[in-house]
């Protein structure tokens, strides 16, 4: 019996870690979700996060203000997202190819421009206990002894859910992802809605990158994002394009990773190949299960299709 105790005991710190390691992925996942709900597939998340992370670092490094850095991160990724918009919405390029190009370009550019700053440190965001709430037993340390960006990430899914499900804009956004012709018939320009989705989504993805620079590492290092952008792309699908499930998916994934690390530290041999496969296997399994139960995965019907410019 007492053999199990340490494994139970590390659950708590594992959850604490999952919240903070999950935060950047959560921002990116929600950002990609907004874009895909509007019908734009953006596989450039990885590159956008890199650019966002570098811009956030530079903003904070030169002004000393992490909040300014955060804005830089968001807006720079928004610019990248608009580049994707320019290629796909104006120049009619393929969304799949443009996204891949964006990842290659963004990763390269951020590493290239960041070279002179490697391993320079910044102040960034540090843990900030929420008064009262942080002293709740068990839950307090997990949820309320984190940094301020994590607290923002608690509110964000609710905001997004409200935006997507309860506002006219959200309705237009979802409709644009499903059937742009109907949106146009209703007198709204689907192109404009997609631009809005790209900008909002890009900004959120940028915050994810910024989190890595400003809160996780608090310095600039090469290849800071290391594949987290791709995990975000997978999680959007895992979440069936729903913000609530996205939160669940992100914390499930980061929680399992965090727990397995700790189990390994306690001396259990975990086949790490399986661990690294997990998010991808999970996504496939969930999609398969839903298909077997005859449920629709909820993919926006017009995802990855371009609007015809003549229309």
């Amino acid at each position: 019996m007492e053999d199990f105790l340490p494994y139970l005991a590390v659950l708590l710190p594992a959850m604490t870690a999952a919240i903070s390691t999950g935060a950047p992925i959560l921002y990116a996942t929600l950002g990609e979700l907004v874009m895909e709900r509007g019908g734009v597939l953006n596989l450039g998340v990885e590159g956008m996060m890199m650019v966002g992370a570098l811009a956030a670092f530079l903003g904070c490094y030169h002004t000393g203000s992490p909040w300014f850095g955060l804005l830089c991160g968001g807006f720079s990724a928004m610019l990248m997202s608009m580049l994707h918009g320019a290629i796909c919405l104006i120049f009619q390029g393929s969304q799949v190819v443009s996204g891949l190009a964006l990842t290659i370009f963004g990763t390269g550019l951020a590493n290239y421009l960041g070279t002179p700053y490697i391993q320079m440190k910044i102040q960034g965001f540090t843990a900030l206990d929420v008064p009262l709430l942080s002293s709740i037993p068990v839950l307090g340390p997990i949820f309320f002894q984190q940094d301020v960006l994590v607290y923002l990430s608690y509110i964000l899914p609710f905001l997004l859910w409200w935006l997507l499900m309860r506002t006219r804009f959200g309705l237009a956004l979802r409709a644009t992802g499903e059937n742009p012709a109907a949106v146009r018939a209703a007198g709204i320009s689907p192109g404009a809605v997609r631009w809005a989705a790209l900008m909002l989504g890009g900004f959120l993805v940028g915050l994810g990158g910024a989190y890595l620079a400003l809160a996780s590492m608090r310095m600039w290092v090469d290849n800071l994002v290391s594949g987290r952008g791709w995990i975000a792309v997978a999680l959007v699908i895992f979440a069936f394009w729903r913000p609530g499930r996205a939160v669940f998916g992100v914390y499930l994934f980061s929680g399992i990773t965090a727990y397995l690390f700790r189990a390994q530290a306690l001396g259990v041999g975990i086949p790490t190949a399986f661990l690294s496969m997990l998010p991808y296997l999970m996504t496939l399994a969930v999609l398969l299960a839903s298909s077997l139960r005859g449920k629709d995965s909820g993919a926006p019907a017009d995802l990855a299709n371009n609007l015809r410019p003549e229309d």
Partner: peptide, 12 residues
């Protein structure tokens, strides 16, 4: 990283 940047720009 210049290599990636170059390739990305050409593709775009």
């Amino acid at each position: 990283s210049f290599a990636n940047t170059l390739e990305g720009i050409i593709l775009i």
